[in-house]
Design a protein around this nucleic acid. Structure first.
Length: 938
RNA sequence: GCCUGGGUGGUGGAACUGGUAGACACGCAGGACUUAAAAUCCUGUUCCCGUCAAAGGAGUGCGGGUUCGAUUCCCGCCCCAGGUACCA
């Protein structure tokens, strides 16, 4: 029979499901291998061709690892809490659980028909109570923990209480709020329970804090920075304002250093690690206090400006201070004469958006406050300026300007005629700042003559001695806000008593999401959960008395630990059993997009480290190796509508090659009715009713469409659904084609131009096993040398390619191998059977079918041993040496590979053809690289 | 502005440690088979100059450099994509 992909694929998908072929084993002597995909958010639009790219790659790798004898865990699930379902619920009144359920069903159907080898018995859904019970449980552990700097790990809050009872606050070195109390053991014991709880909250790893958030009154919710565009919500375009709000926060900053150090131990793409490093933003420097020099009227007498610097060594080069326009001392420092100028500048700075500030990096602006500050190391008076290049939110919102060493300070000094003092002997500052750390210090008081390292230490020591500063490590990263004023998320397992948060009992988990009449905030601006009638915490008295926390958890809560749930998805007593965690340990390979670089991937590492501190998991880092998949962009097609003399659109369309001769306007056209940029005119006429009578100006009898690369989106008619392609070519073709498209990590536009070639390849492969009348026909004869060579070439190539995640090149190599074997008319069972095994990770359905036709037991292919590469078959005795003259290849010459360099040279020089090129000249030099090339220099 | 990635035929891409640039595939052109079409098969296809062929020249974003030899290494520049925080 011809290659009937539809029957074959349906048959094997059913077989795998019925036989649970890919169920991972928890008890086995095989080595484990855990392959994880970033689980999708099940949106209403369904799966598009960009999704499976990473899933196919990880599936190939999983299937390959099974063939290599590993016990592979390859699960899938859904990140099913999220805003779109809630948005839809607001519009339609449908419960998000219902739409989510329907969307998941669509995703599952689409995933199934691609033939993934997922172990579906371990499926997780973050919105399922069985799952979020444990998200809430982890939240409780965070609430019940604090971070000891001495132990450099999280510890139970009970240990902190025990310490307070015994020693008071003395000897505690914790990551905590700034305004903690000092007390003795007796003072602690004398406190009321509520006073104690309020104090403990300052230490907990999840805690309540007043934070400024992007509040959108129209949406009734808090938005992330990237959901806000120029002061308006990205969704809907509503105004956004800054609002202070009590919010749950996560003390991720406690882990800043460990998150940084851990990056050196994991095999992730370097750019991604760099992004995390920048996000954490560690800078080692010093805090320096500049006393304000009081004005004549005495104002500013006791004020101090604190600056953070990474170059304490340059302090003698400080010629002015710059503070942010929002700095709290601005009004105090501004003198009467400067008031107008300062106020004008602040008004101007407020108007600028961040984008404008960045685009405007070359313009220097600022204003003098009229006040002076005193440099603590030399007593010099320096001017204090405000400028918007200093940000209020970073460090202390003030910098000491050293124009000789910092380019921005340099430009500022030039602009406003402020002094520039060189401080290092080799510094060159004629045209720009020189941030060098080489050389020796000059003009620098007690550090003159010292080197960078010595100077930094000396300055910090001096500052500490003067009480004017200290060494300080600064992190850019802030604690993560953990509350959302939304409905469709995990309820926080907390109730309030006397205004203080208390955890509900563990036995009361999961705290179910209550029913509400509408998914909107209340009129008074409370989150949707406030609408839940009678939703109160009953407490010990078993009366409905206490308020629940009304905000829910953010999207990243459920995804910050999900890989552990896969290890033991059905466990009702623990988030995963100790045995499962000890066996599976961590994720060996994680594939996903780089857009999660600083969100999901950082939070997951944070929770993992926390769980490890509590002894609940065993590895410090959750994802040993990570591969980024590139983004699949859409390739839009356009038709060109002819414009008449009055500028009105007509119903005539001009082929792309002819648009220069006409006045036209481009219109998006559905890419699904365009084939290789050629418009299907019949389908176009049915595309929209007004196109029914459309006329065309063709070229060569065809309508050629224009194209552009854009974001994949419904409105651009460029979304390609895998369903149509599977219908037409089958899953095996789709799988191989997505890999054939190019390197996995690279972003690329989707186009189906080459898919025919992959489909033809699979038919050709099928044909190898069949005669001209499509009867299955393989021979048991001994393979020839050429056949063995083809086979072993591909065994080695595919193995190398998979190991370095170069799937596109292995698809090409398969094509070459099949072309060779077709030319050799090879139908030897011993060759074809091995080929079936190595192709099976890529095109599993066709391979399963052929595997059985070859006489093997159904279902055994997935665990067949991977063929062993034998270099014997690839040994050549001759090589066609490229002969180049002055580096330009002129011809090839067959020379025995057993010859040594001198012999090769002799043979080349004796060749009549070579001498024709030499034209009687004597070569200056002959370079021979054995097995590679001969280059003759004349 | 800064950080990261990228720029190779009409298109997607290959060339792994400096050693035949353009594998493989799409598209296109020509041909075979067919009443015809589809399917399939064969041939050609980087560009320029050349009547086919031979021969020659140019060529991996641009300009230099190192080298017997550079898509690959070094310096400078341009363009595209993503990220971003003027981060002291």
């Amino acid at each position: 029979m011809d290659y009937q992909f539809k029957d074959i694929e349906k048959k094997w998908q059913r077989f795998w499901a019925d036989h649970q072929t890919f169920k991972a084993d928890d008890k086995t002597t095989k080595p484990k291998y855990y392959v994880l995909d970033m689980f999708p958010y099940p949106s209403g639009a369904g799966l598009h061709v960009g999704h499976p790219l990473g899933y196919i790659a990880s599936d190939i790798f999983s299937r390959y690892k099974r063939l290599k004898g590993f016990n592979v865990l390859h699960p899938m699930g859904y990140d099913s809490f999220g805003l779109p379902a809630e948005q839809y619920a607001i519009q339609t009144g449908q419960h998000p659980a219902i739409t989510t359920e329907a969307n998941i069903a669509t995703y599952r159907r689409q995933l199934d028909q691609i033939g993934f080898s997922f172990d579906w018995s371990r499926e997780v859904r973050t919105s399922s109570p069985d799952y979020y019970k444990w998200t809430q449980w982890i939240f409780m552990q965070l609430f019940n923990s604090w971070y000891s700097k001495d132990a450099d790990k999280a510890e139970r809050i009970s240990e902190l209480i025990a310490h307070f009872e015994k020693n008071g606050s003395a000897g505690i070195n914790a990551v905590c709020d700034e305004e903690i109390l000092s007390f003795t053991a007796d003072e602690w014991k004398a406190k009321s329970t509520n006073e104690q709880l309020a104090e403990l909250l300052k230490y907990r790893l999840t805690y309540l804090r007043e934070s400024t958030v992007n509040w959108c009154p129209a949406l009734g919710t808090v938005l992330a920075n990237d959901e806000v565009k120029d002061g308006f919500s990205e969704r809907g375009g509503f105004p956004v304002e800054q609002k202070k709000m009590m919010q749950w926060s996560m003390r991720i900053t406690a882990y800043a250093d460990r998150l940084l150090k851990g990056l050196d131990t994991i095999d992730w793409p370097e750019p991604l690690k760099e992004m995390q490093r920048n996000w954490i933003g560690k800078s080692v420097g010093a805090l320096v206090k500049f006393k304000v020099s009081p004005q004549e009227n005495g104002i500013g007498q006791d004020e101090v400006i604190e600056v953070f610097t990474t170059r304490a060594d340059t302090i003698f080069g400080t010629t002015f201070l710059v503070i942010a326009p929002e700095h709290e001392l601005v009004s105090t420092l501004t003198t009467a004469e400067q008031k107008a100028a300062i106020e004008t500048y602040i008004a101007q700075a407020k108007k600028k958006s961040e984008l404008e500030r960045m685009a405007d990096a070359k313009t220097v602006s600022g204003a003098f406050t009229g006040s002076y500050a005193i440099n603590p190391v030399n007593g010099e008076k320096v001017q204090v300026w405000i400028a918007d290049y200093v940000l209020a939110g970073y460090g202390t919102g003030a910098v000491m300007a050293v124009p000789s060493g910092d380019q921005r300070d340099y430009l500022f000094a030039k602009q406003f005629n402020l002094p520039i003092i060189p401080i290092i002997d080799i510094q060159k500052i004629e045209t720009e700042a020189d941030p060098t750390k080489e050389g020796h210090y000059i003009n620098s008081g007690f550090i003159n003559g010292l080197t960078y390292k010595e100077a930094t230490a000396a300055v910090i020591a001096k500052l500490e001695e003067l009480g004017a500063g200290k060494a300080k490590v600064n992190f850019r990263m802030r604690d993560a806000i953990f509350g959302r004023q939304r409905y469709w998320g995990e309820p926080v397992p907390v109730y309030f008593k006397d205004g203080l948060p208390h955890l509900i009992k563990e036995s009361e988990l999961p705290l179910l999401l209550p029913e509400v009449d509408k998914y909107l905030p209340t009129e008074s601006g409370e989150p949707p959960l406030a609408r839940a009638e009678g939703w109160k915490y009953k407490g010990a008295e078993n009366k409905a008395t206490y308020e629940h926390e009304l905000s829910t958890m953010p999207g990243w809560a459920g995804s910050s630990w999900y890989w552990y749930r896969y290890m033991d998805a059905q466990n009702r007593n623990e988030f995963a059993s100790k045995e499962a965690i000890v066996y599976w340990k961590d994720v060996d390979l994680y594939i996903g997009g780089s857009e999660h670089a600083t969100g999901h991937l950082l939070y997951s590492r944070f929770w993992n480290k926390f769980l490890k501190d509590l002894g609940l998991v065993v590895e410090e880092e959750p994802f040993k190796k990570l591969i980024n998949q590139g983004m699949i962009q859409g390739r839009s097609n356009f038709v060109y509508r002819l414009i008449d003399d009055e500028g009105k659109g007509t119903n005539t369309f001009v082929s792309h090659g002819l648009i220069k001769e006409h006045k036209t306007t481009p219109l998006h056209v559905d890419v699904n009715i365009v084939d290789n940029d050629i418009l299907n005119i019949d389908k176009f006429r049915k595309f929209r009713t007004d196109f029914e009578v459309a006329e065309f100006i063709l070229e060569n009898g065809k309508y050629i469409c224009g194209h552009e690369v854009e974001k994949m989106s419904k409105s651009k008619f460029n979304v390609v659904n895998p369903d149509d392609l599977i219908e037409r070519y089958g899953a095996d073709t789709l799988r191989m084609y997505e890999m054939f498209l190019g390197p996995l990590e690279q972003s690329k536009p989707w186009n189906t131009n080459g898919i025919e070639g992959v489909f033809k390849f699979l038919r050709k492969f099928w044909r190898l096993f069949h005669d001209d009348a499509w009867n299955f026909n393989v021979s048991t004869a001994e393979p020839t040398k050429a056949e063995l060579k083809s086979l072993h070439k591909i065994i080695r190539k595919v193995e190398e390619d998979i190991e370095r995640f170069s799937f596109n090149t292995s698809v090409s190599s398969f094509m070459i191998a099949i072309n060779e074997l077709t030319d050799l008319k090879c139908n030897k069972k011993s060759i074809l059977q091995d080929l079936v095994i190595i192709l099976s990770p890529y095109a599993p359905h066709i391979c399963e079918e052929l595997w059985v036709l070859l006489g093997n037991e159904a279902g055994t292919l997935s665990y067949a041993p991977y063929p062993k590469f034998n270099p014997q078959y690839l040994i050549e005795d001759e090589y066609a040496y490229p002969i180049s003259i002055n580096g330009k290849t002129k011809m090839n010459l067959n020379i025995s590979l057993s010859l040594e360099l001198k012999e090769i040279e002799a043979e080349v020089m004796a060749s009549a053809e070579v001498n024709k090129y030499l034209d009687g000249k004597t070569p200056k030099k002959v370079i021979v690289v054995k097995g590679r090339i001969v280059n003759i220099v004349v």
